[in-house]
């Protein structure tokens, strides 16, 4: 599934009087790997949530592929068919095995059990954890859990992969492996990838950067250098 173009126009998100995102506009081309940077509280997580339809903008529009995300009446379907999420805290369900965790988006999509298992094993192979498919998340290291979370995010063959501080809780070796997986996902599947991170390694892997300061986009033009913006 090729990556989706992402268009944000004048996106604002406010909680009462508190404006978290203020008139943010940008375009991400299909297959790009974008570094979303900014200090804590600058609005990175909120922007990812709006792009992934976990939340709605107070005003403005967001188009992902052919979908007007800001107007979605059935966001679950959009998330299931178009978006993959990787969270800082991985959010694996502790009572399910690694394979069952990877299968969760496929369960929602109604994929048959045998096919689900096959695809979960294939994805776990891609992240180097094929032999841990029956383990519980509690038996894995932090880096391994994040790799499982990436496999889960890719299970639905998303056009847009959103990652929020995916290496925030990992050491440098584990972080490097996660970055390689995100880059591989983009290269292998053509997925559009937007990563919010403080990690200095992000600059080495991203095509370009979007930088937020106090909810406003201060840099993000397609001809800007990723190195200077993502640092």
């Amino acid at each position: 599934m090729p990556g989706a173009r992402v268009i944000a126009e004048h996106v604002t998100r406010a909680y009462g009087a508190s404006v978290v995102l203020d008139d943010v506009s940008f375009v991400v081309e299909p297959g790009e790997l974008i570094a979303l940077t900014g200090a804590s509280g600058s609005g990175k997580t909120t922007l990812l949530q709006l792009l992934g339809s976990l939340d709605r903008p107070t005003s403005g529009s967001i188009i992902v592929g052919d979908t007007a995300v800001h107007r979605l009446s059935r966001p679950a379907r959009f998330r299931r068919e178009t978006v993959g999420f990787v969270f800082q805290l991985h959010h694996l369900l502790p009572t399910l095995t690694v394979s069952q965790n990877v299968q969760l988006p496929l369960v929602a999509a109604g994929v048959r059990r045998r096919e689900r298992s096959r695809r979960a094993l294939e994805l776990l192979g891609e992240v180097g954890l094929a032999d841990r498919d029956r383990a519980l998340p509690g038996d894995l290291s932090g880096g391994e859990r994040q790799r499982v979370a990436i496999a889960r995010a890719l299970a639905g063959e998303p056009q847009l992969l959103l990652a929020d501080e995916p290496t925030g809780a990992l050491d440098s070796v584990a972080s490097e492996r996660v970055w390689r997986l995100l880059v591989a996902a983009r290269e292998r599947h053509g997925t559009t990838v937007i990563v919010a991170s403080h990690d200095s390694m992000l600059a080495e892997h991203a095509d370009r950067g979007l930088s937020l300061v106090d909810g406003r986009l201060v840099s993000g033009s397609s001809d800007g250098g990723a190195g200077e913006e993502a640092a």
Binding site: L54, R74, A76, L104, A108, G156
Partner: peptide, 16 residues
């Protein structure tokens, strides 16, 4: 709550 939020985030509908 976080478990159900996660299910919702990966595409489970409210009914599911």
């Amino acid at each position: 709550r976080s478990e159900f939020a996660l299910l919702s985030a990966v595409g489970w509908s409210r009914w599911q």
